[in-house]
């Protein structure tokens, strides 16, 4: 597999995780600083399950998703009942705890050197897994947010009191958002494990957690299109910068991008709208009319 195909695979994988975090932080308005931890759960679980029980990779992926979701709901159950600040702190704590455990639980995780020698994708196999899964994730998520249940999640972000008084069980929908985001992050983690052929703690640091939220903010809170575009920009960025030997500048670039977005486009690249063909047609029509007018003058 060529280098650029590898970048493509990674972009698809992170896109799945970013879409997950977008449901929680963008649509539901609950910020998280620990979702790389849920990717780690998915990654280690899938690798270990595939290795130990000698099952096909997709079984491992499902196991990783399931465990990540269960853990997420376990964390959410007490913290989502109370005000949002506790939830952020809890996600930060769980992210850090998983990172430390993966370092020190050497018999299970392999410690700092990582867990390896498990069945992984061979050559182009990664693409055949990642691309169809990504497409399913995008379609299902789009349908989800355009359904009653997706609207309920946005409603509680917009005004929790009003959401309650129109009969929405706010706690339940916070749990659904948390479960959805953890499932997708667990899935992304599993895919990453089988693509990288090695799972190690450095892949899931708090910086990675922050990157996920940054991508959501950059793309626009409450826009699936925004999350997809942000993933397409931010995931290959470190790879591109690698050639300019400017790795150290990556964080500064990130910071700068965020400040620029907040200054000039506080709602994110895509606001809370979605890409649509009719929207594109309108945009083209509007701009072509403007151009024509300019031509007439």
């Amino acid at each position: 597999m060529t280098y650029w195909l590898g970048v493509l695979v990674q972009t698809c994988i992170y896109m799945i995780a970013i879409i997950g975090v977008s449901i929680l932080s963008g649509f539901c308005g609950l910020f998280t600083l620990g979702h790389a931890g849920f990717m780690a759960i998915g990654a280690y679980t899938s690798a270990i399950v595939v290795n130990t029980f000698d099952v096909p990779i997709f079984v491992g992926l499902l196991a990783g998703m399931l465990l990540s979701t269960l853990l997420g709901l376990l964390i959410g159950a007490p913290t989502l009942r109370i005000n949002g600040d506790y939830f952020i702190i809890a996600t930060m704590g769980i992210g850090e705890a998983i990172y430390l455990l993966s370092q020190y639980l050497i018999p299970v995780t392999g410690g700092p050197y990582g867990y390896m020698d498990f069945h992984s994708f061979r050559g182009m196999e990664a693409l055949f897994y990642v691309v169809p899964i990504l497409i399913v994730v995008i379609v299902v998520t789009y349908f989800f947010i355009k359904s009653k249940h997706g609207r309920n999640i946005v409603a509680l972000r917009e005004n929790e009191m009003a959401a309650l008084t129109v009969g929405i069980n706010v706690y339940r929908y916070k749990m659904i958002s948390m479960g959805y985001s953890c499932a997708l992050c667990g899935l992304a983690g599993g895919l990453l494990a089988h693509y990288m052929t090695n799972v190690n703690p450095a892949m899931f640091t708090s910086t990675k957690s922050n990157d996920l939220v940054i991508a959501v903010v950059l793309g626009g809170r409450g826009s699936l299109t925004g999350a997809i575009i942000a993933a397409m920009i931010l995931t290959p960025l470190p790879e591109l910068l690698r050639f300019s030997s400017a790795q150290e500048w990556r964080l500064i670039m990130y910071g700068l991008t965020i400040v620029l977005v907040i200054l000039f486009r506080p709602t994110g690249l895509y606001g809370d709208r979605e890409f649509s063909i009719s929207g594109l047609a309108k945009w083209i029509k509007r701009h072509s009319q403007r151009l024509m007018k300019r031509g007439e003058n």
Binding site: K148, G150, N152, E158, N159, A162, A163, G167
Partner: peptide, 28 residues
Amino acid sequence: RLFNAVSVLENLMIACQQTIHYSALDGC
């Protein structure tokens, strides 16, 4: 207290909790 960022029609749709009963799976 409206759902400010959401369209007027969607504000009303959100209130239709008693009219819409399908599951999350139906939606997805």
